[in-house]
């Protein structure tokens, strides 16, 4: 475990906690895309099947359980919680799941390392994670008024992806650990999706004004 990986996992954890905190304390999910949250729940459910088959470390297992638990709780809050669900803006959050899920499923069937159920689902989760943020980014662009916590959430997620790339570079030089090229490309695509958001996030921070994305 290197510093980039640890920092990446911690920002990922922080992003989820920020979102749960917002939903739980303010009892509002305004500006949060249910589509993105459902896609993340699907990402974790398909990727972490190995908690039943492999043991890597206590850290690894605990983190997987946290990501599974938190993603499904967020979906539950937005769909079922009697107060939170009222703040969900269904009209704005229109991105179609299958528009992302089907191409990822197809791509996983075509490009994978091994043709086994577990491996295909893992590959699918890697592809899906790369694009799962899209409904959230579209929603941010539409709502214009981005509250602080939602902005922090997306920023922390972007930071997590950037740190994972640094982690792969570091692991390559220090451990000669090769991350599969599927992971590299999906990871790079995912990180690039945040570039635009990062630009406006830092601009608003520098000028000390409220974050707004151009229409």
């Amino acid at each position: 475990m290197n510093i980039f990986r640890l920092a990446g996992d911690m920002t990922h954890l922080a992003s989820v906690l920020v979102l749960l905190l917002k939903i739980h304390t303010i009892k509002s999910c305004a500006g949060v895309s249910l589509k993105t949250q459902e896609l993340y729940a699907l990402v974790f459910a398909t990727r972490y099947l190995d908690i039943f088959t492999d043991f890597i470390s206590v850290y690894n297992t605990v983190m997987k359980l946290i990501f599974l638990g938190s993603s499904f709780s967020i979906v539950w809050y937005i769909r079922r919680h009697k107060i939170v669900r009222r703040s969900y803006d269904k009209e704005q959050d229109t991105f179609r799941h299958y528009f992302l899920v089907l191409p990822c499923l197809l791509l996983a069937l075509l490009i994978h390392e091994k043709f086994t159920v577990k491996e295909l689902l893992w590959t699918f989760s890697i592809y899906l994670e790369a694009v799962a943020i899209l409904p959230q980014l579209v929603l941010l662009q539409r709502t214009r008024n981005i509250d602080n916590l939602t902005g922090q959430y997306v920023f922390l997620l972007g930071a997590y992806r950037s740190l994972y790339i640094l982690n792969w570079i570091y692991r390559y030089f220090t451990e000669r650990h090769f991350v599969h090229w599927i992971t590299w490309i999906a990871g790079l695509v995912q990180t690039l999706l945040y570039a635009d958001f990062f630009y406006y996030y830092f601009e608003s921070w520098k000028n000390n004004v409220k974050l707004q994305l151009p229409a």
Binding site: T53, D54, I56, S57, M63, W122, Y164
Partner: peptide, 10 residues
């Protein structure tokens, strides 16, 4: 399982 096949990242 082969060590190198283990996916130790999250």
């Amino acid at each position: 399982i082969d060590q190198k096949d283990q996916k130790d990242e999250l």
